[in-house]
Amino acid sequence: MSAPDGPYAPPRARRPRLPWAALVLLGVPVLLAVLGPLLYGGDLAPADGALPSRPPGGQHPLGTDVLGRDVLGLVLRGGASVVGGAVAALAVGMAVGVPLGLLAAGPSRRLDEVVMRTSDVLLAFPGLLVLMTLAATGHRAWGWPVAVAGLLQVPAVARLVRGAALAPGARTVVEALRMQGHGWAYVQLRHLVRESAGPLATDAAGRFTTVLYLLASANFLGLGLPASSPDWAVLVERNRDALFLQPAAVLVPAGLLTALCVGGNLLVDRALARGRGLM
């Protein structure tokens, strides 16, 4: 059977191919972040007599940074805070947002109103500015920016979960499950969570890059981690004046951050295009 052709034919679904480019872009920084600290257990303090901003060679395969620290070691150790921070923030956002969304989709209309209106109020605030105001008031330990970056995602997550749980199809199934005598916990936690898992996963991947971007920007501005941290964003900031003297100290962490963001967005874009094609 041939597909309908002509000017108004729906876009043809392409053969599903593994998105190698996206996986590699995403995988390399993540692997480095996870395995890096295991590979490089040594001390990060500059060795005696180490010169700042030396080009690659000798003892330092990627050269040294402005403080004379080994760039390879820094890069291996710096990914953990980048990826870990984003994952932690995402976890906070989900942990608060999913129950709120389910609560809003529940039987009480007043609860729904309260939750949704509150999240409307919070939705308007630009993330970086909230982080900066926090920094101004002395909340600059690692946990604060991460927690706030996570909380800023709550309105969007709650909205998404509520939407999925209130979808007409989901409602009918919920009615049926309730008539079969399944309890509240079964319906809410087993059925509705599974129902919204798909959209939530796609959203989470997109949100991962958003949070990553937010935290990296904050760290670049010197509002998050201390200046001595090996975090990739901090490395870029510290070494940017020596870009021509020691390009590796800037380009390697910057490239890894970029690869992480591009890879994540490529995967999401693919998932979204797939979803559109199937509908």
Partner: peptide, 22 residues
């Protein structure tokens, strides 16, 4: 558009400054 959108602003800025102006 996807790639440009994903590159962090500070990285893009650094690269442009380095290549075009410096």
């Amino acid at each position: 558009a996807l790639v440009l959108h994903s590159v962090p602003e500070f990285v893009l800025g650094l690269l442009l400054v380095a290549s075009l102006s410096l």
